[in-house]
């Protein structure tokens, strides 16, 4: 006779499910690192997905970056004016945008645009058995769908963050130029004056981590979608919420670690 299953929980159903979920997510991430070094690489699909990620977010990132630059400059001006220190504006904006706002704004926009779309796409493939169809055709769906998408977000989001920072700085320059008639070159020189190599490296590392988080969370939620169309909606929603939550936690950890390195 087959084993008779009984409902026995270690703590309670909710707690057990929570820890099982964390375990599953770690196993999913570990599988990514195992599969990413294996052949085939599916380079064409990685490039396709990178274009998708880039194109989907480009317009929104341009607009948001530009507005963030202008608004942040406008908001900072009165405080600096009180001390007669408006000449510090480019440096202040440079630090704020390159070290924090550029990467964070890009990551949050991509978590909304790209993370939800990955969650929904893979979720709908899961509930309509398209992922099973790949598996029975001897195609590794994890390799073809997950690895390519996570690589695409990990590569593309740092590039988008860099672009976002430059657009934001340009927005800031337009405001500074209107008030103080400084040239674009001198604005950028001042903006980068207080930025050192560690700041640049930290920003790049941060965006790589954000990109990876958005990709892996979207894929994990999509790949494990259940319960038909409702499950697809949940997967898309949870992909955004969880990715944003993790991005903020990662931001705190990376800033703290950078400070340790800086004062070491």
């Amino acid at each position: 006779m087959v084993k008779n299953y009984t409902k026995e929980f270690l703590f309670s159903k909710g707690l057990d499910d929570y820890f099982t979920g964390i375990n599953d997510a770690f196993r999913f991430t570990a599988r990514f690192f195992k599969e990413v070094v294996k052949r085939p690489i599916h380079l064409r699909e990685v490039i396709n997905q990178s274009f998708e990620v880039g194109l989907k977010s480009l317009a929104l990132i341009s607009l948001t970056g530009f507005i963030v630059g202008i608004v942040f400059t406008k908001q900072s001006r009165p405080s600096l004016e009180e001390f007669g220190a408006t000449s510090w504006l480019p440096s202040l904006i440079g630090i704020a945008i390159i070290k924090a706002l550029g990467p964070l704004v890009t990551a949050l926009i991509c978590a909304g645009k790209v993370g939800s779309s990955i969650g929904a796409e893979l979720g709908s493939m899961k509930v309509t058995e398209q992922i099973d169809a790949m598996e029975v055709s001897a195609i590794n769906p994890f390799k073809y769908l997950v690895v390519t998408r996570v690589l695409a977000t990990t590569i593309t989001i740092p590039v988008l963050a860099l672009y976002c920072s430059f657009v934001a700085l340009y927005g800031s320059y337009l405001n500074v130029h209107a008030e103080e008639t400084s040239s674009l070159i001198s604005f950028y020189q001042n903006a980068f004056k207080t930025i050192n190599f560690l700041d640049i490296i930290t920003s790049v590392v941060k965006t790589v981590v954000y990109g990876f988080t958005i990709g892996i969370v979207g894929c994990y939620k999509g790949f494990n979608a259940t319960q038909g169309t409702r499950g697809v909606g949940n997967a898309a929603n949870q992909a955004v919420v969880l990715a944003m939550f993790l991005i903020f936690i990662e931001e705190v950890i990376i800033v703290q670690m950078t400070n340790w390195i800086r004062y070491f």
Partner: peptide, 28 residues
């Protein structure tokens, strides 16, 4: 060596008919 025909057909909805048919072949 096994063909599996799904109840829902499970066609890849981001690909056209040609791409759906060529996909298992080119991947294998």
């Amino acid at each position: 060596r096994i063909g599996f025909s799904f109840q829902s057909s499970a066609l890849y909805d981001s690909m056209n008919v040609y791409q759906n048919l060529a996909f298992p072949l080119t991947m294998n």
